[in-house]
């Protein structure tokens, strides 16, 4: 590809990415989000974050991996349990990451 084409790609990608991110922010002062939509939007964080990580934790390239020898699954379950019980963010992350790496080093290898 020529430099001109690569420049066009960057400009084009910037324009669509920036537009998606700012179109609502730009009109925020006059935009009115109806009440029902706001009630639905409060479920966005839990929905999108879960949808991003569930396939990472439960599958690999060849399919579902619902076994206790899958470090991703065990690490994620550990985080879930620790998070629900203790409600401490840093503790949840540390214990989960530790379990994940211990399994990766000792169990899988």
């Amino acid at each position: 590809m020529s430099n001109a084409q690569l420049t066009l790609i960057i400009i084009g990608m910037f324009l669509v990415t920036y537009s998606v991110r700012t179109v609502l922010f730009a009109s925020a002062h006059k935009a009115h989000i109806p009440d029902w939509l706001n009630k639905a939007l409060k479920f966005v964080p839990i929905s999108v974050l879960t949808a991003i990580i569930a396939p990472m934790s439960l599958t690999n390239a060849s399919g579902l991996l619902l076994t206790l020898s899958n470090p991703w699954l065990v690490g994620a379950l550990t985080c879930l349990v620790v998070g629900l019980f203790f409600q401490r963010q840093l503790l949840t992350i540390c214990v989960g990451v530790m379990v994940f790496f211990v399994m990766k080093v000792f169990v899988v290898a």
């Binding site: 964080p45 839990i46 974050l49 990472m56 690490g75 998070g83 409600q87 992350i93 989960g96």
Partner: peptide, 18 residues
């Protein structure tokens, strides 16, 4: 597997909502 740090963080963000 450094990406697991992201998985752990996201779960720690999600659990307080549950």
């Amino acid at each position: 597997g450094l990406e697991f740090a992201m998985v752990a963080t996201f779960i720690s963000i999600v659990t307080p909502y549950l």
